[in-house]
């Protein structure tokens, strides 16, 4: 098949005037580990141990986590799959991104992912983490799918997905873990391609201090609300009234 040809430039089976956009190809680097002989029974035992004790990180950023919390409860009881929620990324090997991820949360999510020990897995839970969901058309800040941030092994559609759907995803992930081989471990390691340079941007004090509610801009309620509550309206706000009527 064309898509699996050894080089991306192999156009032998394309008719003239056609090209492949977004090509895919196997890596050209080989790793020493992949040439070793590893007994498949060792692989199987190792995989069986891992898939029976996937420890998910307690990570929830929005409504999807409510369903995930239901899964932890006794009715759906996910401990029977050997899942134990962990509150530290250092002890977790499964990240279920339950909830919307914003650009402000993105560095924190990537950092949590990087802090998890290998081998690690990610399940994208809910429409928000697959495509941005209901925020995908007009939100200025929602990330359009966590696969734009970290590698995702299983996607669960739904808004929110039911706990049964999460169980289904976990079973699919267990199947994926079961087919893995230690020989391929080297390919999943991170490769850093660092490039360093100086810059001429202006250093300013941090703008994200978590104190924007105290800056004064948010201390007075909107005018309509103040009127209906019988609060005295300051002159500055009353001056805004003509504008309000236009709207």
């Amino acid at each position: 098949m064309v898509l699996n040809s050894p080089t991306a430039n192999n156009k032998v089976s394309l008719i003239p005037g056609e090209k492949i956009a977004n090509p895919s190809a196997p890596p050209t680097v080989t790793h020493g580990l992949s040439e070793n002989v590893i007994l498949t029974t060792v692989d199987d035992l190792y995989n069986w141990c891992r898939l029976s004790s996937l420890f998910p990180l307690l990570y929830g950023t929005a409504c999807c986590f409510i369903e995930f919390a239901a899964l932890i409860g006794s009715r759906f009881d996910f401990d029977r799959f050997g899942l134990l929620p962990r509150a530290s990324p250092r002890q977790a090997d499964l990240l279920i991104t339950a909830g919307t991820v914003t650009m402000k949360m993105a560095p924190a999510l990537v950092r949590l992912y990087e802090q998890m020990p290998d081998p690690k897995y990610v399940i994208a839970m809910g429409a928000c983490t697959i495509t941005g969901g209901m925020f995908s058309s007009d939100s200025p800040s929602a990330v359009r799918g966590v696969d734009k941030l970290i590698p995702v092994d299983v996607y669960i559609p739904g808004c929110p997905p039911r706990p049964e759907a999460i169980i289904d995803a976990i079973i699919k992930l267990r199947k994926k873990v079961a087919t893995e081989s230690m020989q391929d471990r080297a390919y999943t390691l991170q490769t850093h391609r660092f490039y360093e340079r100086s810059h001429d941007l202006k250093v300013v004090p941090p703008i994200l201090t978590g104190r924007y509610l105290q800056t004064g801009a948010h201390s007075a309620p909107p005018k309509v609300l103040m009127e209906s509550m019988g609060m005295p309206i300051s002159e500055a706000i009353a001056e805004l009234a003509p504008e309000d009527k236009e709207i």
Binding site: A21, P23, S24, P26, Y187
Partner: peptide, 13 residues
């Protein structure tokens, strides 16, 4: 086509 998807990456997304 200057770069291509790595078919052996951790998760093919």
């Amino acid at each position: 086509g200057a770069i291509s998807y790595n078919l052996k990456s951790r998760a093919l997304n």
